[in-house]
Nucleic acid binder design. Structure first.
Lengths: 147, 147
DNA sequence: CAAATATAATTTGACTATCAAAATAAATAG
DNA sequence: CTATTTATTTTGATAGTCAAATTATATTTG
């Protein structure tokens, strides 16, 4: 098998595994009532300030109808709060609750841990090559499809 | 910025977009009636020979019920053929049609482009080192997050 | 200003992807 | 020959998604 085929195979497997790992870690952790996509909504809302529905939907690349139902569920589960803006009453602002902030942090920690663990397997020359390859892929995607 | 932060940032961005990009690349191409998961089914069936439903479902890590409906749709769209095995009439064999084979090849090309981009500027000893690095990470993840 | 238009969000209706469990059909074991 | 196992499909349920219709509010324009 050529190097290219090997790289392709292992990249495909790694990416599939990481998604799988993320889902499974979520399911056994403190926030097991959250799906991956709900966690992504929490991640996109972020810790800092209130965000509008439309901005958040745009970031997540989903329609606002989709986000509305996602947020409905996250409010039921007490991860998110929603209020109408006073300045422009068409606008709805959302933000994380305390529980939402904890979920956000926990997910952030998971990511850090994953990356640290992965890089511990490598020496410094391997680390640089990995960064180079990942950067290349990132550039490829950005060229191939403009966001 | 530290290597860790760099890798984390790139990974998060890649993951946020990879499925999306792959789907969009699909949607603008010759096979715009295929979703990403349908393409994965086609990929798993492969070009070489007939496969059974159960083997394919196992590879894809979905239940056979899920695969049945996916294959139903792919047959409607003329990407896949299905027949009962004569040796064991419980078994169903599936294979790609000509159209399915073309879709497979097109998807393969997309992955080849991706790998070529990823490996840009790397000489063959660096390629080998990267393969070693990726393999380490893959093995490590399978150990650490074995459930 | 009042009517027309634009914008932000939600609701509705539909579809895909998925699973677990029940049902069906065929092969194998006792 | 009956009981059990195996391969698949069907059924019933849920999550995530979109496009289009609807609602409410804001902005533009004649």
């Amino acid at each position: 098998m050529s190097n290219h085929e090997t790289v392709n195979e292992i990249l495909v497997r790694l990416f599939a595994n990481i998604l799988d790992i993320e889902e499974k870690c979520l399911r056994v952790g403190d926030f097991s009532d959250l799906s991956i996509s709900e966690m992504h909504v929490i991640d996109s809302i972020g810790m800092n300030q209130e965000r509008t529905m439309s901005d958040t939907a745009k970031d997540l690349k989903v329609t606002s109808g989709t986000l509305t139902t996602a947020v409905d569920n996250l409010i039921k589960k007490d991860y998110v709060e929603r209020r109408r803006s006073i300045e422009d009453r068409r606008v709805v602002k959302i933000k994380l609750t305390e529980k939402g902030i904890n979920a956000f942090k926990s997910h952030e920690d998971f990511h850090k841990d994953l990356v640290i663990s992965a890089l511990q397997q490598l020496d410094s020359s391997e680390e640089l090559l990995l960064i180079k390859a990942l950067t290349n892929i990132d550039v490829f995607f950005n060229k191939k499809y403009k966001f």
